[in-house]
Nucleic acid binder design. Structure first.
Lengths: 202, 202
DNA sequence: GCGGGAGCTGGACGCATGTACACAGCAGGT
DNA sequence: ACCTGCTGTGTACATGCGTCCAGCTCCCGC
């Protein structure tokens, strides 16, 4: 083994502890917002000693940044899973895909709160903004690729439009849980209809 | 005078101080986020004694809620002002109106940060959520009324779609200031085109 | 002009926080 | 078998917080 693996199976365990801490951060953010992320609270939530949070992460900012990265990874995972389940063959598939994606996110609202909580914070934290940007670019690129395969013109711009629409919906729902997915579906149908030239409304 | 006006011109002065404190809260939120809103920081920013913030407002939540109400009032004001300047006579006017509205908001980015910062917080604060909801309903109703005058079908739903789109754009811009208003204009044109039946794309 | 009381203030208190650091525990080398 | 050095931990400290409240200031009523 190289120099990195100092003791028998040490690094894997350290990595597991790191993950546990980051998961705890995400749970705390979902429950109490970014403000609630304190070393003590996170350590208690992750059931690790107080010193661990400062030992594994340089600062509170570092903690939040890495936690967002972890969240992003989880989102990529569910995106891939959904893409396997619902292949995109037409514009109608696209609407269904996006609605189902949001439906799953809403089933576990922690992720949504985390995402917006950290996006807003990123407006004041340059490093976090970098992380968020990478995430956004990734999402946009994935969607744009699908759109291109569907023959949508200006795929990148169209992807941004759709994401903005979904974001606006989720934001709306954050404070008004009565908004239904059917509303999102209707909006998406209108916009997707306008984006795909082959489809007629009447 | 009635029982309310205890001393000569006392209430006006008290009201002025209240406003000064709320303005200070908005500035602090814009600069450092909701976390940064502490009695000491706000008092310093408003140049009032420390005790004033607890004297005039029951709690930190109360402070934030009322500050949001103040922000909402300011937005209504600029909406009215803009409506006087740019009367809506066609769908093209609508796109121009919304873009100009966002342009003015971006010119003073504090308002945008405040809005999203507090919306996200409202996900965990029921009272604040009530306030935010009233604001959203007001905005939506105003826009819907204009849409109806333009002959747009399902005006309320269309208004929500447009607002979601704008929100998504502003959120995007929060972490990627390079996004241009021209992008928003293009997106709005597509969507408004789809919403207004009388207009053809080609 | 002055007594009284309401509006207002700022210092003090108890508490939670981030961080630093002295030390424990363990594994490998000798 | 001991030494060595590193990973990981819990305690201690300074700081900054929200809140409380004793008392000051100021102005009306007399």
């Amino acid at each position: 083994m190289g120099e990195a693996a100092r003791t028998r199976a040490e690094l894997p365990q350290a990595e597991r502890k790191r993950r546990a801490i980051l998961d705890a951060v995400l749970r705390v953010v979902a429950e109490g917002g970014v403000d609630a992320v304190t070393h003590r609270r996170v350590a208690a939530e992750a059931e690790v000693p107080l010193g661990s949070t400062t030992y594994y992460f340089a600062s509170r900012e570092d903690l939040l940044r890495e936690a967002f990265r972890q969240h992003a990874g989880a989102v990529y995972g569910s995106l891939d899973a959904l893409a396997d389940e619902l292949p995109l063959r037409s514009a109608d598939d696209l609407v269904g895909f996006l609605v189902e994606l949001v439906r799953r996110e809403l089933a576990e609202p922690a992720g949504i709160v985390v995402e917006y909580e950290l996006i807003v914070r990123a407006a004041r934290d340059l490093e976090l903004a970098r992380e968020v940007n990478a995430y956004e670019r990734n999402l946009t690129a994935r969607l744009a690729e699908s759109l291109e395969r569907l023959g949508v013109a200006h795929a990148l711009e169209a992807a941004r439009t759709l994401i903005a629409l979904v974001r606006g919906f989720e934001l709306e729902r954050l404070t008004r849980p009565s908004v239904e997915l059917a509303d999102l579906r209707r909006r998406l149908r209108v916009v997707v209809g306008a984006l795909t030239p082959s489809r007629r409304s009447a």
